[in-house]
Structures are given as C-alpha cells and as structure tokens.
C-alpha cells in the first residue's frame, strides 16, 4: 500500500498553485489528504503531480459575511472540519453545518480533513455536500481564467465527480445563513460510530417550505421538496423522488425504510426545536 511515484509541489501562494496545475492534466490538489492519500496508497489514483495547498496562508479563514446579497458563513479551503465544527460563528449563523459535521468521521480525521475538500471530493455518502446543496450554497473556485462561483446545484455531476475542472482550486465554500424563523436538523444511521452513513437526512424548514437532503441514497446528494406534505406521509413522499441503492451493507428496501424513518425524524426534530 504505497503510492505510485508522483511529483510534489508546495506553493506558497494561490497564484503559484494555479500555475502549477496548469498544463498538468493528471495533477491533484492535496488538502487534508484524508480521502486522497488512501486512494493513492491503494493505487486507485496515480496522479503525476500533487499540489499541496497547505502552505498557502489565509486559506484557513472562517468568516461571517455577505455574498451575492446573502448573509452567510464563508469557510476557507484549509479550514479543518474540527475548526469549522468548533466555530461559534458557524454555529450561530448556520447551525446545520456543525450538526452535520459532528457525524463526519472521527476526531483525528476531522483534525486534518477540510470541509472544502470534502465538498470537492463529492462523495454521495458524505455529509457536507448534502448540506451545501440543501442550503443553496456555493463554492468559490480559482483557475487560470480567474475566479468563478459554482452553485451547489451545479456542483455534483456523478459519484465522486464535481464540476471543478482539473486546473481549478476551490478557495472557499459559502453556506447561507439560517433565515429568522427557519429551522434545520440532521439525522443519520451508520453501522458503526463515525462511519459513512447508511442513510442520512438533513432538513430545512422555513414556514411552509420543507426540504430534505439525503446522503448515501443516490449517486449524488439529493434534495427533495416536501412542502405541503402531511407529516404522516413525509417518508413515502420522499421515496417517490428517490431510488435507494443496494450495497453490501444494506438492501434498497432497508434504505427505503431508513428514508421513511429518518425523514420523519429529521422533520420532527426541526419542528420540536422551533
């Protein structure tokens, strides 16, 4: 379990990092390494070059700000899961982020892994992509052509596939603030403590609007609008929009049952907190 040979650069500025990626179609960005390094070690990925962004200063910032006319919290590319989880600003502005982060892996992995890295990695079993999608957040991305914004709705293309181009670096993620009067909740069921979920559900309830996002159900994070559905029918209504998968840990039928249970649980938890 040793990686195949690769070149390694650790630029000190974002511009240098972007320049390093240019013209190297098989290069990869290295952030916390918690997903990438296992892939390298198992030789499931064999990039020609790793561009380590950990030497770029300022990328670890977490700030409350306004973007595109929306209040929210901006999480820099080097902000570790643990720092985001511990941030009082994040908790105050958008409590769904720490609610979900508490389910991401174990403490040691959260100390290294970055929230932005997790968003880019685009694992449909991961918590944060669903959170960003449900909240309608976005990624700030820097490439040879400058900076652009990718809205969460356009970010997830397929399993482990995001809309970032190979020469782009995600600089930050933006999670919109929780609107006054709105509520959020997060529930998941995993086989073992800290594992990727068998099914997870994040809910955003704002007045009559009820939206639930699901992880580990489909190939990409999926949000279902359940506005106007009677509480007793929430699970079934969600299932009409979803096609849960089977794998070695759970059958599709069992995942469907978890969708029913968790949809009701998560919406109930939001209502209860309100």
């Amino acid at each position: 379990m040793k990686p195949a040979p690769f070149d390694y650069r650790r630029p000190g500025t974002l511009a240098e990092a972007v320049a390093s990626l240019a013209g190297e179609p098989n290069a990869k960005v290295l952030a916390g390494g918690q997903s990438l390094v296992p892939l390298l070690s198992m030789r499931l990925a064999a990039p020609s070059l790793l561009v380590d962004i950990n030497g770029i200063s300022g990328l670890d910032r977490i700030e409350v700000c306004e973007q595109q006319g929306v209040d929210g919290v901006r999480v820099g590319a080097l902000a570790r899961h643990a720092a985001v989880l511990a941030s009082p600003d994040v908790r105050r502005v958008q409590p769904l982020v720490p609610m979900a982060l508490a389910h991401v892996a174990h403490a040691t992995i959260r100390n290294r892994g970055t929230t932005v890295g997790s968003l880019v990695h685009a694992d449909a079993a991961a918590e944060m992509p669903v959170v960003l999608t449900l909240l309608g957040g976005h990624l700030e991305v820097e490439g040879p052509a400058g900076r652009r914004t990718i809205h969460a709705d356009d970010l997830y293309i397929g399993p482990l596939e995001s809309a970032l181009s190979h020469d782009e670096i995600a600089v930050a993620a933006f999670f919109p603030a929780l609107a006054p009067g709105a509520g959020v909740g997060f529930e998941e069921i995993a086989r073992r403590h800290g594992d990727y979920a068998l099914v997870g559900a994040a809910a955003l309830v704002d007045g009559d609007s009820v939206k639930v996002g699901y992880l580990s159900v489909s190939d990409v994070p999926t949000v279902v609008d359940l506005s106007g559905v009677a509480d007793a029918d929430l699970g079934e209504a969600a299932l009409e929009k979803l096609e849960p998968m089977s794998d070695i840990h759970a059958t599709a039928a069992y995942r469907s049952q978890l969708v029913r249970v968790l949809t009701e649980r998560v919406v109930r938890s939001v209502r209860k907190a309100a």
């Binding site: 198992m42 086989r191 073992r192 403590h193 990727y196 070695i248």
Partner: peptide, 28 residues
C-alpha cells in the same frame, strides 16, 4: 453483528478494508 467476508460470485472480496469490513470500534 458486524463482520463478514463479502465475496461476490466471481470470488472477489468486496470489503477488503477496514472501511467496509466492519470490525467493531470501542463504541460498538
């Protein structure tokens, strides 16, 4: 309650890592 060797019919072991072979943690 957790562990098994998930072989497919062609004899590939589908869970040959601690991510998918569910050895219990102390929390279990």
């Amino acid at each position: 309650l957790y562990e098994r060797m998930a072989y497919d019919e062609s004899g590939q072991l589908l869970n040959a890592s601690f991510m998918d072979f569910l050895m219990p943690y102390v929390t279990e």
